[in-house]
Design a protein around this nucleic acid. Structure first.
Lengths: 340, 340
DNA sequence: TTGTATGCGTTATCAC
DNA sequence: GTGATAACGCATACAA
């Protein structure tokens, strides 16, 4: 099967190519009769315009470039970001947009993110995960192409993230007001990551406002994003002193899973001796034993908000999107915290 | 910034557009001097050919369409398939190919998978997960476009999957020969899925060959793919009789996690009373407590083999790929089995 | 070795 | 309301 063109259609229908084009694009004046003839023919034969020709002519592509920086090679296996991408994708596709991963090599041409965008004529860019030292992203942010992100905070990029401070606050409120704990600590993620930094700072701010003092032995920074570094961070906290915190907030669920295992291996009962609250609510959080209490980020809303705004920006360049949108989170109480 | 064309370059350099094109595509005869002039200019200005024009002219796109059927809406959050996609993607990108999710609507045009492929002029198709009742996939398989899959078995699609029978065999060998168990059962996934059916059949075949008899009370089919259905399947097996199997093979890790929890809730010790072997080795299998023994599928090799073959098929249409390639699996012993 | 001309399938601007 | 016709940016056969 070789592809039909509007020329073929025009010939078959005894019309001019331009008329076909008008019908397909709902433009110009065409009589109802011919319109129907064309539409019927199109439906019957399943004709679809060739996008490359259309792109070439119109400069639009109905496609969105996706930047998914592969931190530590976890890439799409990283549950939280996969989920974000999943929901962004679903929303965008419903609006008729297609997603393409941005790559830095096409055929045998090397190129920057921005060049790639120019080249593929993508309408906008979605950064799921990005590194702050990624030159390509810095460059992209300065250009006039619409860019949204669920991760990175940068001038020129519209960011949709969770309200990290609120999350930490409700978790601490739980520990102090509900659970009436005295000793509360934190195992944060690597502070080079903005989100972890925000959670870490929110923790200190809360203590500050409430007039509490942070016990430095109860604060450990996990060196990386995963299980192993979480395990090590907890080991370190155990070594730090004899008196552990009664409650620990962990920077992310991924890290919390390592923390949980370390506690188990050291025969420290959760939640009886130590209560744990993670962050994210990744899929496996509820599957663990004990299942993980955590601060849930709404990946559906996060992904959809990013998608909706990007599409608006694309379709109406005058549309103003705030630089930063913070969505509320909520506390999910499971088995790593006690019932009150 | 408006995009430069080979025309602009030609003008700036006092050359003909075609000369520029030749240099860029490493074709035809160009003097070293002019080649260098052009190359330098290109490097300096960061010129990149417009892909739509190039596609329109050459009919190639250096891109691969991805079908990722969203079973039960888990989509990219499904750890096993995400992992497959991840590795396929990495390999394909290294070869200069780009991945695009196949959608059924572009702008305001509805279309079939195949029409989409024609439209986007993708060079080939990769089906990560597909449903057998998906008309679009059935249609695609009949066309002359190269299609590979890591899931679905269909004429016209080259499939790369794990050797399910081998997996079941080594697991059963472990239970019978190493662990010397007498009672071994299975909680299979939904048999409507080909892979689960293969694992289920391999189980029976093994018993048959060894002259063993299957205790029907020790076989349960999980109704779905996830935690909850695994939990329910195990509950049912417990209700079935007083004497549980000493060893259970579970159709997938996802299901096994539910099984594990059910055992925990019923105060049945793993691995002391019941030993468990899952299938897949998803990322979280090793993070559980107890960590899950499982039959590991090599998602790296699986994804890469599919990518490598697809690209070969694209670049050399005469290249013959076997209809089905089965890759070896291996048994990962963790904490849901005893040490021997 | 280099330049010219043509066409890929559309869309858009005009005449008719 | 409809139909020529010229771009869009590139690749390629062919002429110079």
């Amino acid at each position: 099967m070789t592809k039909k063109t509007i020329y073929d259609i025009a010939k078959d229908l005894n019309l001019a190519p331009s008329t076909i084009s008008k019908v397909i694009n709902h433009k110009g004046n065409v009589s109802d009769a011919t319109r129907k003839r064309v539409l019927d023919y199109v439906k019957e034969t399943g004709y679809v315009p060739t996008s490359s020709a259309r792109m070439l002519k119109s400069g639009r592509s109905y496609s969105i470039g996706v930047v998914f920086t592969e931190e530590l090679n976890i890439g799409l296996e990283h549950a939280f970001f996969s989920s974000l991408l999943q929901h962004f994708k679903t929303y965008a596709e419903r609006q008729g947009y297609e997603l393409s991963f941005i790559v830095s090599q096409l055929g045998n041409h090397k190129m920057s993110y921005y060049e790639w965008c120019l080249n593929k004529k993508v309408d906008g860019v979605y950064i799921v995960v990005g590194a702050y030292d990624d030159k390509g992203i810095l460059d992209l942010a300065k250009r006039d192409i619409p860019v949204v992100s669920n991760d990175i905070l940068l001038d020129g990029i519209k960011t949709f993230i969770s309200n990290n401070e609120q999350g930490i606050n409700i978790a601490l409120d739980f520990f102090f007001n509900e659970a009436k704990l005295k000793r509360v600590g934190m195992i944060s993620g690597p502070l080079s990551s903005r989100a972890f930094k925000m959670r870490h700072d929110a923790f200190y701010k809360y203590f500050d406002i409430k007039g509490l003092t942070v016990n430095p032995n109860h604060i450990v920074e996990s060196k990386s994003f995963g299980f192993t570094s979480g395990y090590q961070a907890m080991e370190q906290m155990i070594k730090n002193q004899k008196e552990l915190p009664e409650g620990i907030i962990v920077g992310s669920d991924d890290i919390a899973i390592g923390v949980l295992r370390c506690l188990y291996d050291n025969n420290i009962k959760v939640p009886e001796e130590v209560q744990l609250i993670g962050f994210d609510d990744i899929h496996s959080a509820r599957l663990l034993t004990p299942s993980l209490s955590t601060i849930r980020q709404d990946t559906v809303k996060l992904g959809e908000a990013a998608a909706a705004s990007l599409i608006k920006m694309i379709e109406d360049p005058t549309f103003e999107v705030p630089q930063l949108v913070e969505l509320p989170v909520n506390l999910i109480l499971r088995e790593t915290t006690k019932k009150y």
